[in-house]
Amino acid sequence: MFISKRATVAAIASLMALALSTGTIWAQTATAWSKKAALDAPDTTEQLYEAAKKEGKVVLYSMSSRSKDVKASFEKQYPGVTVEAYDMRNTEIFEKIERENAAGIKNADVIFVKDSDGTMANDFYARGVVHSYVPKDIGVKVANEFKRPGFAIYLEMKLVFYNTEVYDKDPIDSWWDLTRPEWKGKIMLTNPQAAIETLGLFCSFVQNSAEMAADYKREFGQDIKLSPGIANAGYEFIKRLAANDLIITSSDQEVVDAIGAAGQKNPPIGIATSSKIRDKS
């Protein structure tokens, strides 16, 4: 796999616990209004299109820059309906929704965000600020567990990336490999204090501490010995990982760019979101 058209980078997924985040679609509305508006009614695409033409536009709040592509393709497929797309960060979308709701404004028709920290599900959805809208045409193809709260249209994972100009096979096969001395000062990841997805990965280590302990035994041939004051193997892994001189970055893009740079003899490896695989060439 290639990153940034400069060097090959591959992603390891096997034998590793994965933290998942979702890209989720919401429709903004209060619960009572959503029932009155019959948002969950079994309307056909044609019926929805005719109703949309009467309104003239649909407002989209999106955390993806691909909202511009959505606007172009939607307006081409459904002439007479304009897409007013806002490309914002997740936090900006949450702040905008909160301010508008406090002012009694219902501006967004569709909200596309990552709900990694549960803000949409546990706050906005629970308060009736947003409604979980499931498109009829693709809803039938998605398992019910991904329809409420929020319609999850994709899942992301945290993977380990490496440069295949240097490594012709996976350089690690366990999370615990990242605690070995040979990787000291060579592991990159986004700051967990700033990136909720990285923090979520760390939480998954703790939540799956039994699996982490079992993997340690497979890797080293003995039961793990926890440090004083450490509750389980998940916390122990985080402690040892942090002690291995991590290279902290401000974004996943920094991680894959540094790993994928061509001509390196001793490149780092790093943890980044699976969507970065789409940068391959």
Rank of each mutant, 00 (worst) to 15 (best):
residue 2 F to H: 08
residue 4 S to W: 03
residue 6 R to W: 01
residue 11 A to V: 02
residue 17 A to G: 06
residue 19 A to G: 13
residue 19 A to F: 11
residue 22 T to S: 13
residue 26 W to M: 02
residue 26 W to Q: 01
residue 26 W to C: 02
residue 35 K to V: 11
residue 36 K to N: 14
residue 37 A to H: 09
residue 39 L to Y: 13
residue 44 T to Y: 04
residue 49 Y to D: 10
residue 49 Y to L: 11
residue 52 A to D: 13
residue 52 A to S: 14
residue 52 A to C: 07
residue 58 V to R: 08
residue 63 M to Y: 08
residue 73 S to Q: 15
residue 76 K to F: 04
residue 80 G to V: 08
residue 80 G to S: 13
residue 81 V to G: 12
residue 84 E to Y: 09
residue 85 A to H: 05
residue 86 Y to T: 04
residue 87 D to M: 04
residue 89 R to V: 11
residue 93 I to K: 05
residue 94 F to K: 12
residue 96 K to R: 15
residue 97 I to V: 15
residue 98 E to T: 10
residue 106 K to L: 11
residue 110 V to C: 05
residue 111 I to L: 02
residue 112 F to R: 00
residue 114 K to N: 08
residue 120 M to Q: 09
residue 122 N to T: 08
residue 125 Y to E: 05
residue 127 R to P: 06
residue 130 V to D: 08
residue 131 H to N: 01
residue 134 V to C: 08
residue 134 V to G: 07
residue 140 V to W: 04
residue 146 F to T: 09
residue 146 F to N: 07
residue 147 K to F: 04
residue 151 F to A: 06
residue 151 F to Q: 03
residue 159 L to P: 07
residue 163 N to V: 03
residue 164 T to D: 11
residue 165 E to Y: 03
residue 167 Y to E: 04
residue 171 P to S: 09
residue 171 P to I: 09
residue 171 P to D: 10
residue 174 S to I: 03
residue 174 S to D: 14
residue 175 W to H: 06
residue 175 W to V: 01
residue 179 T to Q: 01
residue 180 R to E: 15
residue 181 P to V: 11
residue 187 I to M: 10
residue 187 I to C: 01
residue 189 L to R: 03
residue 190 T to W: 06
residue 190 T to F: 07
residue 192 P to M: 11
residue 203 C to W: 06
residue 206 V to C: 10
residue 206 V to L: 01
residue 209 S to Y: 08
residue 214 A to Q: 14
residue 217 K to N: 11
residue 220 F to T: 02
residue 221 G to V: 05
residue 222 Q to R: 12
residue 223 D to C: 06
residue 224 I to S: 09
residue 225 K to W: 00
residue 226 L to P: 12
residue 227 S to C: 01
residue 227 S to I: 01
residue 230 I to R: 04
residue 230 I to D: 04
residue 230 I to S: 01
residue 231 A to I: 12
residue 233 A to Y: 02
residue 233 A to M: 03
residue 234 G to D: 11
residue 234 G to P: 07
residue 234 G to V: 00
residue 234 G to K: 07
residue 238 I to N: 02
residue 238 I to C: 02
residue 239 K to N: 12
residue 243 A to G: 07
residue 244 N to S: 03
residue 250 S to W: 08
residue 253 Q to C: 00
residue 259 I to Y: 04
residue 264 Q to I: 01
residue 270 G to R: 04
residue 271 I to Q: 00
residue 272 A to V: 05
residue 273 T to Y: 07
residue 276 K to W: 12
